[in-house]
Amino acid sequence: MNSSLSSVGVVFGREFRAYFATPLAAIFLVVFLALAGTMTFFVSGFFDRNSADLTALFAWLPWLFLVLLPAIGMRLWAEERRSGTIELLMTMPVKPWAIVAGKFLAGWAFTALALAMTFPLWITVNWLGTPDNGVILAGYLGALLMAGAFLAISACISALTRNQVIAFICSVIVTFLLVTAGIDVVLGGLRGWAPYWLTEGVAALSVLNHFERITFGLIEMPTLVFFGSLIGIALIVNTLVVELKKAQ
């Protein structure tokens, strides 16, 4: 028998390599970098802003991630259920949570790789000016946390179906709601009629607000707890869903 941690490692290794077994990973990385670059340089006007920071990149990440992380997470479980390999996986002498964690970490590591590949932007700002690299680092940390939350949610939804497309669409909808909960249009719509606590509650659920604060360099407890509990809850639900629905 394995210790649970080494099982997490074994699952992680297989899943991470699985991303590169098909051209999907390369396509994903290219699309992500192309979109991130386009948004940063052309839409946000990276050079015209004349300011040595990566705000132009970070401002777009929530919107890019809400499409891209469901794409990374959709296959994690739906594919296992479609091909029947879930029966193999769940009859191994391994705790279900270890499999859930291994899969999640593999997707997260892949996202970290994608984020790391935006390093030319970081070099560019350092070459052109003297940015506060601490703030930039905080921004990357925030991006990684946000990605983790979106991925955990996508993985959880993926466990509910054997169809990757359905998993993708449902995940995009949920992450979209989480992102838009903080924008003024939504909150303004609520303010007219909803009680104060509801408006504030919805605003507190907003990924956008928490992420924005962290990109200003504010690494605060509520933000860490927010992303941490999103990830934690989604993974716990994921484990329950896998155990309850594996045979259906």
Partner: peptide, 29 residues
């Protein structure tokens, strides 16, 4: 203590035989 072949012999199609068996072996400690 159990070896199990599910109906239809499911396996990860994109993995080479050696990698797949190595994965299964590692999962079993």
């Amino acid at each position: 203590r159990l070896g199990y072949l599910p109906e239809g012999a499911p396996a990860y199609g994109d993995m080479p035989v050696a990698d797949f068996l190595r994965f299964c072996g590692r999962m079993r400690g």
